[in-house]
Simulated scan of single mutants.
Amino acid sequence: MPADRAEASTRHPRHQRRGEARLPAAVATLVAIVLYLALPQQLLVAPRFVVPVLEFALLIPLTAINPRRVTRQTRLSRVLSLSLVVVIAGTNLGALALLIHDLVAGAADSGQALLLGALQVWLTNVIAFGLAYWELDRGGPVKRTQSGRSDFPLADFRFSQDENADTVEEVAAGSSVKSDWVPTLVDYLYVSVTNSTAFSPTDTMPLSSRAKVLMAVQSVAALLTSLLAIARAVSVLK
């Protein structure tokens, strides 16, 4: 990309961008809902259908505002989208607290059910925090695609594409500077997966205080889930 073209991409809103597809975020949310519905009874933080109904109630207007592409944002849609993430993450952390209690106390009738519940909590943890990073970084999905870089809020994360402009040509061509690259939901889910498996940042670094706090909470939650599930599995298999 010529230098003047790259410079222009940082100054002018990218109205030609189509925006991210709504489907991946909707599917991720639906998977989180199904995982909650399938939790063992002792890990539910509310009656089984209350939380999923609330999540559906938040998802439906978001889909109505942006049915195919996430290109429009209103104050209401922003509140709804952040509320949906809070509900998913909050109820899953509540389920994790109940899981820890049952694993430590050994109160569950079925060890296998608790192990399956631990996997469901871990997977929901990945989805919830991936959605949180997606909603917060650089102003959210609408801001990232519909505004020029000069209008972005400060970044919460530094991706490898953000610093590849001076590498070999075939790598530099995909960098943020030369291709006007911005992260999508898949990138944030990848960050969430690696943070939940390595219990620390890998190739994407948190920059803001809120990003560091969120990654710390996710890492601790994933670590507790993994350690206690392994301990329970050992006791079940004995």
Rank of each mutant, 00 (worst) to 15 (best):
L123I: 04
G139A: 02
Q112A: 13
G111C: 14
A128T: 05
F129K: 04
V121D: 00
V104H: 13
D137V: 04
G130V: 01
L136M: 13
Q112Y: 11
V126M: 03
W134K: 09
A118D: 07
Y133W: 00
L116M: 15
A128Y: 05
G130H: 03
A105F: 12
G117F: 06
L123V: 03
D102V: 04
L103N: 12
N125A: 09
V126K: 00
T124F: 08
D137M: 07
L123K: 03
V126D: 00
L131E: 00
G106K: 03
L114T: 00
G117D: 05
T124A: 10
Q120C: 04
T124M: 14
A128H: 06
L114G: 02
L119S: 09
L136T: 11
A107Q: 14
A108V: 08
D137R: 02
A132F: 12
A128C: 07
D137P: 05
D109Y: 10
I127P: 03
L136F: 13
E135G: 11
F129Q: 08
F129T: 06
G106N: 03
A105R: 15
D137W: 05
A108N: 11
G111V: 10
L131D: 02
A108D: 13
G117A: 10
D102G: 04
A107S: 14
L136P: 08
V121L: 00
L131T: 01
L136N: 12
N125D: 12
L131C: 01
A118L: 12
Q112F: 11
G117S: 09
L103A: 15
D102L: 06
A132W: 11
L115R: 06
R138W: 09
D137I: 04
Y133M: 02
L103W: 14
